[in-house]
Nucleic acid binder design. Structure first.
Length: 344
DNA sequence: AAAGCGGGGCC
DNA sequence: GGCCCAGCTTT
């Protein structure tokens, strides 16, 4: 459905902007990255929040730790990849940390330490797509550049009862056009923030709180009572089950680790696999499941005898000095922590 | 156009 | 268990 058919262009759009922004002034939360106009501090938050909930980034201290370790472009650019991954470990999607690191090097070397304010230059930075570019330009510089994330897709999908799947090209194109059309020239920062806040607290993925929504009277899905049917999405592929066995080798209070190869958790460390270890002769320590991308993995952890250690490349880490551990994939860290506790 | 990429919190 | 999250890059 075209916007022109739904809303009589100008006046309704102005009303929508006004209702949304005034709601946000009363109800917007005061996140650390909303207290600043520093493009670095804002970009760090945007990178961390890609496919990641605010509660995780905030409550588990990722944002504070990062800003403390790397307060500016310069400190980040001067760090090593291992240092960067260590601070990022546990957050997932580790390429994000590398992209941010590479961006810091580009900003310090090519831009004299000043973040560009031109959309195409921002889009050329690694790990920054259309959403993140719009977010930094609107939040840091109050430029009138649209953003579109999961929250905003859901909101627009309901307001305009969009039948196209929001994760397909056609639907995305339509949604971006809406984001451009509805965006005000002035105070884009508040408008963009308000949309995300609305998606986060009112226009929820499950049952939205339409009674508390400032724009419910303009929302077709709410008016028709069909909010639960929107947004439309692609069918999910169900996870593939697989099994993984790893070994804990201990020597002089140290544990043996190998480094991740391939593209998954690249650069992080892990417990060695046990492809050639006869697990029937080893004691199983613990077993649990975790999900990664499209797999559901049953992980079995064995206590192995040193004579079975054939792997050459690896490191030994002190079991009782966690601060000396290198960046580890979350499941392996958990297994080692469990072993460490149980052993005492 | 589709797949790959982590991990956790909540139902 | 599955769902979803302040997405982006690669194939």
């Amino acid at each position: 459905m075209d916007l022109e058919e739904t809303w009589d262009q100008y006046e309704t759009i102005k009303t929508f902007q006004r209702l949304l922004i005034s709601w946000y002034r009363k109800n917007g939360r005061d996140y650390p990255w909303r207290k600043t106009r520093d493009p670095y501090a804002i970009l760090v938050s945007e990178m961390m929040l890609q496919q990641t909930r605010i509660a995780v980034v905030l409550n588990r201290g990722f944002y504070a730790r990062w800003m403390n370790a790397f307060p500016t472009w310069t400190e980040l650019a001067g760090a090593t990849e291992e240092e960067v991954l260590t601070v990022w470990q546990g957050l997932g999607y580790y390429n994000r940390a590398r992209y941010l690191w590479r961006t810091a090097q580009i900003i310090t070397h090519d831009y004299g330490g000043k973040f560009p304010q031109n959309l195409n230059e921002v889009l050329a930075l690694p790990g920054i797509g259309r959403y993140s570019a719009g977010a930094v330009l609107s939040f840091a510089f109050d430029q009138s550049v649209p953003i579109l994330d999961g929250n905003i897709k859901r909101i627009f999908s309901r307001i305009f009862v969009i039948e196209e799947r929001i994760d397909d090209y056609i639907g995305e194109k339509k949604l971006w056009t809406l984001a451009e059309t509805l965006l005000p020239t002035l105070d884009a920062r508040s408008f963009n923030s308000a949309l995300m806040e609305l998606g986060q607290t009112i226009c929820l993925p499950g049952t939205p709180l339409c009674a508390s929504c400032p724009v419910s009277s303009l929302c077709m899905a709410s008016t028709l009572g069909v909010t639960n049917f929107y947004p439309k999405k692609r069918e999910k592929i169900h996870p593939t089950l697989c099994e993984e066995t790893v070994a804990i080798f201990e020597k002089d209070g140290q544990i043996f680790l190998t480094q991740e190869g391939g593209s998954r958790r690249r650069g992080l460390w892990r417990l060695p696999g046990t492809s050639d270890l006869d697990t029937s002769k080893s004691r199983e320590l613990i077993e649990f499941s975790y999900s990664i991308t499209r797999y559901r993995v049953r992980l079995r952890v064995f206590l192995a005898d040193l004579q079975h250690l054939t792997e050459q490349n690896g490191i030994w880490i002190p079991l009782n000095a966690q601060e000396q551990w290198p960046p580890l994939g979350a499941p392996y860290r958990k297994a080692i922590e469990y072993y460490s506790q149980q052993r005492d």
